[in-house]
């Protein structure tokens, strides 16, 4: 279930990366940042939040313990 949600959100983010609705938008947000750039800067922040959630809720704890048992 958890893995399914992560894969779904990942695919959704990959689709949202295409932002076809911004393709022709040459406006400046806050008077200085092009909309196309602002969107993708925001996207970077969302990506970081997504990975923070993955780390929090789907951390491979068992793998970590297995690695430490070696050598």
């Amino acid at each position: 279930m958890k893995t399914g949600i992560i894969i779904f959100v990942f695919i959704a983010l990959a689709v949202l990366h295409q932002d076809i609705w911004n393709w022709d938008n040459g406006n400046l947000l806050f008077g200085f940042i092009p909309v196309g750039l602002a969107y993708h800067a925001g996207y970077s922040i969302v990506a970081a939040v997504f990975w923070a959630c993955v780390v929090k809720f789907a951390w491979p704890k068992r793998l970590e313990e297995w690695a430490d048992g070696g050598e």
């Binding site: 990942f10 983010l13 990959a14 990366h17 932002d19 196309g36 750039l37 969107y39 993708h40 800067a41 996207y43 970077s44 990506a47 970081a48 997504f50 990975w51 993955v54 780390v55 491979p60 793998l63 970590e64």
Partner: peptide, 22 residues
């Protein structure tokens, strides 16, 4: 930025998580 940077934010982190840790 979208071409090279924001996609890297998503995909690089995926590689670190799925490949790097394992």
């Amino acid at each position: 930025y979208g071409l090279m940077a924001s996609s890297s934010g998503l995909i690089h982190a995926a590689c670190f998580f799925l490949i790097g840790i394992k």
